[in-house]
Design a protein around this nucleic acid. Structure first.
Lengths: 168, 168
DNA sequence: ATAAACTATACCAAATTAGTAGACTTTTGG
DNA sequence: CCAAAAGTCTACTAATTTGGTATAGTTTAT
């Protein structure tokens, strides 16, 4: 009798790898990630004239229509400017040293804090909290927020580009 | 002719204050917040027998059915245990010094990181990233993650209760 | 045995994200 | 001066997640 072990010749095995994308609650949005990539791209071409949306979209792997909305936000925030018509595009108007990650995140994802009661500009009381003054949980997340904002403020488009050139 | 200015007598004005709740993308879920409050509650009664779900729900302002699901998660994670029937309830089995905020957050909200490529246990490549080795953006968020996890690990139920007793 | 208490399963509504589609306006090179 | 290139505006949509609720059990102490 013929043996039919797995992997015997004559059989076809199909192996499927499933990668489940686990964008968790606490992570920054694609919008912010795209924005940072686009900004770094534009920072590398600072003062070299406008760059096409379609070109950034292609180079940075960002859906064009989505990118258009993002660049518009950044323009309205005074970080970028645009030129219409032939030969137009987007370009950075703030020096790369002056655009920090915290500002970009706040613009696109809102306040940087793990609890509404520890945000800087958009403070809001925690509904279920009984006494904020003595809330030990709040203290923990206040510490996290302070450290986080400090790091994100220190890092600008210029410093990001600086890090990229250092091979590890 | 009678004058009908606003605020003249005889009119009723209804003023509505709308508080829009701005739970932003980056914040922890209510689930985690509720879990922390419930755990602190139970930690204060460590080794004093089981506490009713309904009592915790009432005291901590947590919808009972939602709380039941949360406590079950914490039980399955080995932090709490329960006793059924009359005189039953939930109680902490790990000492309050051994339950830290990072573990609770990871359990209920998933990985603590602002980018999938800087998580510790659930690492995932950023799709749009071209070269992770030299990615300057990654470096920034790696630094944030490390600081955040360090702070959250340092803080336990015991240390939170300790902070609460200090009046500010 | 019975009622208190936890457990399991299955829904559901609202909000948010990550887009897409398409029409419109502005500008400039030829 | 006009046509095509390029940015802008408005509206829609599909999928996912959160924050629940409802109902029907099962277990256990008194």
């Amino acid at each position: 009798m013929e043996s039919h072990t797995p992997f015997s010749s004559g059989s076809i095995y199909i192996v499927i790898f499933v990668t489940l994308s686990t964008q968790s609650l606490l992570m920054i949005s694609k919008k912010t990630k795209y924005a940072l990539n686009a900004l770094v791209h534009l920072a590398k071409k600072f003062e070299q004239g406008p760059v096409l949306i379609s070109y950034i979209s292609e180079q940075e792997n960002i859906p064009q229509k989505f990118l258009e909305a993002i660049l518009l936000d950044l323009k309205n925030a005074g970080i970028l400017a645009s030129k219409k018509g032939k030969g137009g595009g987007y370009y950075l108007i703030k020096p790369p040293e002056e655009v920090n990650v915290a500002d970009v995140m706040r613009l696109l994802d809102g306040p940087i804090a793990l609890l509404p009661c520890v945000t800087y500009k958009y403070y809001e009381r925690c509904e279920e909290c009984k006494d904020e003054e003595t809330c030990g949980i709040r203290d923990v997340f206040m510490a996290v927020r302070n450290e986080t904002v400090q790091i994100l403020k220190q890092n600008t488009l210029a410093s990001i580009i600086g890090k990229e050139s250092v091979q590890k």
